[in-house]
Nucleic acid binder design. Structure first.
Lengths: 345, 345
DNA sequence: GTTAGCACTCTAAACACTCGAGTGCTAATT
DNA sequence: AATTAGCACTCGAGTGTTTAGAGTGCTAAC
């Protein structure tokens, strides 16, 4: 698909104007607003050509043009000039995220909130996960006579903890047995191996002594499960209501977003550029019907060098790609950096 | 306000029908649907009487009646027959909540989700808090050479933890100093006393040795802060989009809900019945304009006997009070019970 | 006290009409 | 050969009018 220089300029102008206003762009408006050194008629001819190539669409005969999916795609791939965040904005983001640091979920939550606020889109993110992770450390923190906190640390730096209540009192002896069981059976093994089933067979084979501590072990298994099963976080969905294009089917989309599971699949199925650049999925390119008049931008964040989770944006197809892509990219970077901090080098 | 038996019956019928259909109820429809042993004309007379008393309203002269705020209020206070959850439903709720147990936030989140799902309303909840809480225990869990997890337990049973990274290596000696500082200064004191400012003056007075551990102490202060500042959780806001009455101003309401702070105030300001029954705020009774065509039902849950947080429902004024009130009540009870489990007796 | 009957009211839907932004084509201009 | 002015045409959004129907209030009869 080759376009003349003028066509490129025009296409970019049309798309940018449509993104800004949300209304079909007509030839006259375009010439007036952009001060192009040509007449509306010329512009009309070019627009007809671009329409023929499938880059523009006409809602009806006597309306202006709006970009087609292919139009956006061409724009994103070839025309768009990305607008990076200013150093000041970056510093503000940094600061806000740092204060949330500590719990990965909280970092992602604030990241999502910031992103939603900045972009007026819905922000989605998945908590870190690493299927190949290995159990690196388990700790039992006494809280009360019959309550303890179980802490798991994996090789990929994920830390999870949960409070657990046992039927019997937790003695030093019992804690020791717990550590022994853990050391013998789970340390250095993949988290996936630490299942409830495995623990039950273990409890049987070890006999009476372990009976009182099954709650502890079960909690451990549950924690292991959460390190694998990634959670989805969704922020700022209400932003979408501000856009004309969602006036009718807002409910459908929101309902879709609320059921995290398919979204999770969207991310893993979608093509993602290898080089750390965010991926863009535009309108109909999307496999799910509910998302076909939306676009998504998403990128992976890496903890200690491993791609661990995704942060994404969902908004109308006429989103401001030129600004949002760099914003998202910066955020994935900084989130990765912050989350890596809790992993030992 | 005294009504005849027939008027009561009629009012209840009108409200219930309006709740179900969302459309103004006319005299004929009412007689047909309810098989009342009177004619539409009689019903009309009674309706006129109820309108005169301010319990019903007419959108326009030739439409049916809809309940007024006062009408709902009368219904909720005097007419409504509450529908409890069935034992089966209760058991299902129980089970689902139990699996989330461990982290109070997670319990509330699932509770909110379940509530939203069941009621098709938005569910709000606040994490437990207790201003009078005292620091009962602090633990430092080693994670790596320079990473540790700080755990705080308060007298009201709130447990919070966060991972912290220090500049220097964490030695046994250092941990001991940390415990000493904590024991001497914070244990048994209110969480509110454990502020960053306090910690800084402390660090100065104790000199060099504590310098390396300020990150740990700061984390501690942050944790203390989170035990006081309650968080708001909001689930199922998209449910609201399903109702006709929110067609236009959905955005306004959602935006209001998203900014948790005022909602927090709503809960604390609103009158709450003393006896553990949920409170109901109907339409215009609400102090905030954005909520004035919504109703709220909310109740407090208690951890170990102390009222600790709120769970609430927000929906259109024509919500199904008869079912939602008992559902909410049951949920506050069970959430309180589950959260109390992690507190020692 | 209840009910049938009837005139009255108001909304929502259907329809006709106008206005204007925008188009595509053709012929003139550079 | 590319550009542009001119012009007839299209279509949607907005406006006024009409009509059907649901629902009401009132009166007089039961």
């Amino acid at each position: 698909m080759d376009l003349s220089e003028r066509q490129k300029k025009l296409l970019a102008a049309i798309i940018e104007r449509y993104i800004a206003t949300g209304e079909p762009v007509g030839s006259k408006t375009l010439v007036d607003a952009l001060g192009m050194p040509v007449s509306p008629a010329t512009v009309r001819n070019e627009m007809a050509a671009l329409t023929a190539k499938g880059l523009l669409e006409q809602p009806h005969t006597s309306a202006g043009r709006i970009p087609s999916g292919a139009g956006y795609r061409y724009y994103v791939d070839h025309l768009m000039k990305q607008y990076d965040l200013s150093p000041v904005e970056k510093r503000i983001l940094d600061a806000k995220l740092r204060t949330a640091s500590g719990d990965s979920r909280q970092v992602l939550e604030t990241a999502g909130n910031l992103l939603a606020e900045m972009t007026r889109c819905a922000a989605v993110s998945t908590t870190p996960s690493d299927a190949a992770a290995v159990v690196r450390r388990v700790e039992l923190v006494p809280i009360g006579a019959r309550t303890a906190m179980v802490v798991v640390l994996t090789s990929s730096g994920i830390i999870k903890s949960r409070v657990c209540r046992t039927d019997a009192e937790i003695t030093v002896d019992m804690a020791e047995t717990f550590y022994n069981i853990v050391n013998d059976n789970f340390l250095g093994k993949p988290t996936a191996a630490m299942t409830v089933a495995k623990i039950q067979t273990l409890a049987v084979s070890l006999g009476e002594k372990t009976l009182q501590m099954t709650p502890l072990l079960v909690t451990l298994a549950q924690l292991a499960a959460t390190t694998e099963h990634t959670q989805m976080l969704l922020e700022g969905q209400s932003n979408l209501l501000g856009y004309r294009e969602y006036a009718q089917n807002a409910f459908e989309l929101m309902d879709f977003l609320r059921h995290a599971e398919p979204l999770d699949r969207v991310f893993s199925e979608a093509p993602h550029s290898a080089d750390g650049k965010p991926s863009v999925v535009i309108g109909k390119e999307n496999p799910y019907r509910e998302l076909q008049n939306s676009s998504m931008i998403f990128g992976k964040y890496a903890i200690a060098g491993h791609e661990s989770g995704t942060i994404g944006l969902i908004g109308p197809t006429r989103m401001d790609y030129a600004r949002l892509i760099p914003s998202l990219q910066y955020l994935t970077e900084i989130v990765g950096k912050i989350l890596s901090d809790s992993v030992e080098e």
